[in-house]
Design a protein around this nucleic acid. Structure first.
Lengths: 197, 197
DNA sequence: GTCTATATATCGATAGAC
DNA sequence: GTCTATCGATATATAGAC
């Protein structure tokens, strides 16, 4: 039988949350379309049919993964920015938090958000776009402030898009077992855009 | 019946080429997994079964699309670089050719190469990686020369990766009907990395 | 809540006529 | 070379027992 009471926040249903985290890894590693509901069931010790007590459709799981990825990153960034003293260190925080979220061990969810967007139905996109815009607004504020202090170039809207593109792309080539730590990578990427005087 | 003689270059079989171009658009718009062989047949006026006279598998079509996208772009870049006088204009050429190839009307193939990589079998990857490395080598040469002349920062290997990431990401937000032409966008993105003296 | 069992649909690919 | 016809596998989702 089915109950499926709706927009429960992720935290209040641990079974849901466990499923979302497992789905994030599977979707990242295999892709959304190639991951079957049987795969998802196996990953949490359930039969495939049992998943549909918790989610109405497979796509609803995808949307939950993406929402988790972007909201978790936004929260981490907001609280890290609050603790940064000057603009230069706020700038460094943007890079550091983004890369730790994207390349860190438990954050497949954000990667799914970036690379499975096409599998999201038109109905679900607006809600996710709101979450994404909230994240990018944090970036825009810091970049505008940095530009006013001469730390970066003035074209901050385009700068935001190019920087986020650069960071997103790291998942395609960065290796955790390489010679470069995530923190070092963040520092070097920052150095590429800072204006020296 | 099936013949399927092998590595014919794309040009010498126009039916193959027509199919690859149609597949590029479909794979870009719907994704590889969501595009069925029936979709592909419809796009070129064939029954789905007839496709398998030209290609052994659906994946073989994907690989052909990617190979076309990256080799066409590499050729365009190489010939454009040959006509550039100084390093500054070579640098501009990198951005201009890449964006025209990625955002231009007839170049869905390159976008498929960037965003359907996970659907390529392990057996087919090495051949495509060779093609990609050839393209990136052109970038590396120009960036190294530019760094030696003080036009860009010195960390050119990381710079190459961040710039390509920025450019790849444009497909996610650039609109052809917007206020910014592709050439203007290339110019402004270049301006963000040029070192002023 | 999770199970078993299955409905229903659709997929990639093949076989043989023409 | 393209067609018709279809095989066999596998997909998401549902129904009802427990």
């Amino acid at each position: 039988m089915k109950r499926n009471e709706l927009p429960a926040t992720p935290e209040e249903n641990s079974r849901r949350m466990e499923l979302v985290r497992a789905a994030a890894r599977l979707f990242r590693d295999q892709g959304y379309e190639r991951t079957t509901v049987r795969d998802l069931g196996n990953a949490v010790g359930l039969q495939s049919g049992s998943l549909f007590y918790h989610f109405r459709t497979k796509e609803e799981i995808l949307v939950a993964v993406m929402a988790l990825g972007i909201t978790a990153t936004t929260e981490q960034l907001a609280s890290a920015l609050a603790g940064a003293k000057d603009t230069r260190s706020k700038l460094a925080t943007l890079f550091r938090v983004h890369l730790h979220s994207l390349l860190g061990d438990n954050q497949a969810a954000l990667e799914v958000m970036l690379y499975e967007w096409r599998s999201v139905s038109a109905a679900a996109k607006p809600g996710l776009i709101v979450l994404r815009d909230r994240y990018e607004a944090l970036w825009q504020q810091v970049l505008d402030q940095a530009a006013s202090e001469g730390l970066v170039k003035q074209d901050t809207r385009l700068l935001r898009r190019t920087l986020l593109g650069s960071l997103h792309w790291t998942v395609q080539w960065y290796r955790n077992d390489g010679e470069l730590s995530v923190a070092q990578l963040a520092e070097r990427m920052l150095a590429l855009v800072i204006q020296e005087n």
